[in-house]
Write a protein that binds this DNA or RNA. Structure first.
Lengths: 340, 340
DNA sequence: GGCGAGTGCTCATACGTATGAACGTGCAGC
DNA sequence: GCTGCACGTTCATACGTATGAGCACTCGCC
C-alpha cells in the first residue's frame, strides 16, 4: 500500500534507480528509446509518482510560492481589498506552473499573523513569498529582509535599513492626474480631505496631490492636505464658506461622509462642489465617484512575476515596480459650480 | 548566506545534531533545561528554521493541507460558489495550525485542471487534500482513491469501486422539509422543475422531494420530477392548466425562468403559484426566494476537520458526513392561490 | 563492592531523489 | 592489436531531519 519509489520501478524495469530518475526527470540524453519505454511502462504499472519532498530536499526549489497576509487571507470586511489581488496571483501562478501556499498556520489568538514564531519562519517552506495587506508588521518585514528571505510586497513599504522590493500602485501619478483633470475642468481652488491613516500609500497620494497643485499653480488653502485628518464640522464650515470648488478625498468612506456633510449645509455634488476620490470605488451601489482604479489583478500577476524572477535569479538586485492606475470618470465631477 | 542547519546549531551549542533535533521538535524528556537553553540560544543566534522538505521526507507529515479544484480556485463566474467554502477552510486551518496549498500548478491550456499529469501527482506534497468544485473529474478521483491518497471531497461524489469520503450538504432532508412545509401550508398538488444537471447533488434533491411526496401522500403529476429537464412551453402549459399550486425548482436560474414564463401567462408568484428553490439564493437582488441555505463556511470547516482526522489516523475507515441545510423563508411561498 | 536504574548525550541510519564521476562495452581508425 | 571515443548504465553521495539503539556515567541500595 505504500507509495512506490524509483527503486521499485527500477527493479521492475531491470535497471538502476538512477536510470529511472533520469527518465522521469527528463535527463535522457544517453538513454535509448527502448530502455525509456521499459521504464515508462514500469512507472505506469506501479503508479509511481515522484516524491515532492525528496525532490525539494535534493534540489532546493519547490515550485511553491507563498502568500502571506497579516490578516485572514479570505477576508471578511476587507473582501474586495484582497480578493482581486489573489485572482491575479492565482492566475499567474497557474500559468507558469507554480503552486501557492497560503500561510495560515501562523495565526495567533489575537487574530494577527506573525511570520516569526518561537524563532521559526514557516515561510521558508516556499521558494519565495508574496506579502500583502494593510496591517504589515514592519519589524517582521525588516527581519525577513535581513534574513535574506525572498519576497515581494504588494504596496509600498519603507523600513529603515532595508530595501524592500515592492509592487506599487502609482498613487503619486494618479493623484497628480486627478488634480490635473480638475484643473482642466476649470477648478482653481481645491481642498484635500485626508484620513488619519499614515502609510506609504497615503503619503503617495498626498505627494501626487501637492505636486500637481504646485506645478499648476492652483490654490489649496484651508482646509488643505496638511490639516488635521478626518472630516470635522470646522473643516466643512471652511469649505462651505471658502472659494474651493473641488475636493479630493483620500478614500470612499471620507467622500461619503463629505456628501452627507455637504447635504446638511444645502450643498450638493457635483453641482456645488466636485469630488474626486483617490481610491477605487469598486461596484458599490450608490453614486459613481470620479476616482482612480487600482489594477489589483494586474498587480497580483506582476507580483508573481517579480517573485519568480527573484527566485530564479537570486543574485540579482531586487527592484520595486510602479504600476499605473487608470482614472475613471463618475458623476461627481463637473465644472466649477454656482458656489463660485 | 545559506540557511543554517541543525548541524550548524549543534556546533555552536557544543552538542550533537541529534540533540538539536530533539530540542527543536520537542522530544526533551532526557535533556536538561540548561542544555536546552544553550541550544535555543544557538537557534536564535543563527536564525535557524527547520527545513520543511527534509522534515516531510523523514516524517511523512508536513502540516500542509491541499486545496484542489478542477477549476480556478478564485473563481470568476462561480465566485460565491467557492468563496464561502474557502472562508471556512482557511479559518479552520488557521485555528489548528496547518498551512494550505492551493494547487494551481496543474492547469492545462484548456482551463481545466488535472491532478495527474505526465504521471505526476503534485498533490502528494501535502498531507492530504480537500477537493471541491462542480467539475470533478471522476476518473482522476477514482485513481486518487486507488492510489490511497488522503483526501475528502466537498459534495457527494460516487465512483464505482471507490468509496469517496465526502462532506455532503443534506439535500435529501432539505428537499423533504421544503415539501413538508409546502404541505403544511395546504398545498396538495406539487410540480418539480428539474435542470438538465445529472449529478449527485441533484439526485439527492430529487430523492428528498420524492420521499416527501410519497410519505405525505401528495400529488406530483405532470410535469413531475421524472420529466424532461428544463422549462419548456409544454411544461408551463401543463402547469398553468393543471391543479398544481406549488413548484419546487432545482435552482435559482430555473426559478427565475419560471417567474418569467408564468408572468407571460398572467400568473404571479406566490399569488397563483408558490415556488420554493432547492438552492441557496445568496444576496442576489430581486425577489427573495423561499429556499435552502447551504452552510458553506461550516462545510469548509468540517472538511478540514475530516481531512485532519484522516491524516492523523490513516488507518481508520474514511467516512462521509452529512451537513444539515437550513430553510429560509422568502416571499415566494403562500397558501394555495386562486388558481385552485 | 556489585548491580540495577536512571540520566545525558551521541551514533548510525533511513527517508527518496538527482547527478557528477566512473565503469564497461563495442566499434572505428591507424 | 592497441588507442580513442561514443554510448549505455551504474555507483556513490548529498540534501536535512528524526529516532531507536547504544554508550558512559552517576546514584542508591543491599
Amino acid at each position: 500500500m505504500k507509495a512506490p519509489r524509483q527503486s521499485d520501478v527500477a527493479r521492475l524495469a531491470g535497471v538502476s534507480q538512477s536510470a529511472v530518475s533520469r527518465v522521469v526527470s527528463g535527463d535522457i540524453d544517453r538513454i535509448p528509446e527502448e530502455t525509456q519505454d521499459r521504464i515508462r511502462a514500469a512507472v505506469k504499472e506501479l503508479g509511481y509518482v515522484p516524491n515532492a519532498a525528496a525532490r525539494n530536499l535534493r534540489n532546493k526549489s519547490n515550485r511553491l510560492l507563498g502568500v502571506h497576509t497579516f490578516e485572514s487571507v479570505f477576508p471578511h470586511a476587507r473582501e474586495d481589498f484582497y480578493f482581486e489581488f489573489l485572482l491575479g496571483i492565482e492566475e499567474r501562478a497557474e500559468e507558469i506552473g507554480y503552486d501557492l501556499v497560503l500561510f495560515t498556520s501562523t495565526g495567533t489568538s489575537d487574530g494577527r499573523r506573525r511570520i516569526y514564531r518561537d524563532g521559526t519562519n514557516r515561510l521558508n517552506l516556499a521558494d519565495g513569498t508574496v506579502l500583502l495587506g494593510a496591517a504589515t508588521d514592519r519589524e517582521e518585514l525588516a527581519r525577513l529582509w535581513h534574513d535574506g528571505y525572498l519576497f515581494v510586497h504588494i504596496g509600498r513599504r519603507e523600513v529603515a535599513g532595508a530595501d524592500i522590493p515592492c509592487i506599487i500602485p502609482d498613487y503619486v501619478s494618479a493623484a497628480d492626474r486627478i488634480v490635473t483633470s480638475l484643473a482642466d475642468r476649470g477648478h482653481r481652488h481645491l481642498a484635500y480631505l485626508r484620513s488619519g491613516i499614515e502609510q506609504e500609500a497615503y503619503a503617495d497620494r498626498r505627494t501626487g496631490y501637492r505636486n500637481a497643485i504646485e506645478r499648476l499653480g492652483l490654490q489649496d488653502r484651508s482646509p488643505g492636505y496638511r490639516g488635521e485628518p478626518g472630516l470635522t464640522e470646522e473643516w466643512l464650515g471652511e469649505l462651505a464658506s471658502g472659494p474651493e470648488t473641488a475636493v479630493v478625498a483620500e478614500n470612499i468612506g471620507l467622500a461619503e461622509d463629505l456628501r452627507t456633510g455637504l447635504a446638511a449645509r444645502g450643498l450638493s455634488i457635483p453641482a456645488d462642489v466636485s469630488v474626486a476620490v483617490l481610491e477605487g470605488s469598486g461596484d458599490e451601489p450608490g453614486h459613481r465617484w470620479d476616482c482612480l482604479v487600482i489594477p489589483r489583478k494586474e498587480i497580483g500577476r506582476i507580483a508573481i512575476d517579480a517573485l519568480v524572477t527573484r527566485v530564479e535569479n537570486p543574485d540579482e538586485e531586487p527592484v520595486s515596480q510602479l504600476v499605473a492606475c487608470d482614472l475613471v470618470a463618475g458623476e461627481t465631477v463637473a465644472a466649477p459650480g454656482k458656489k463660485e
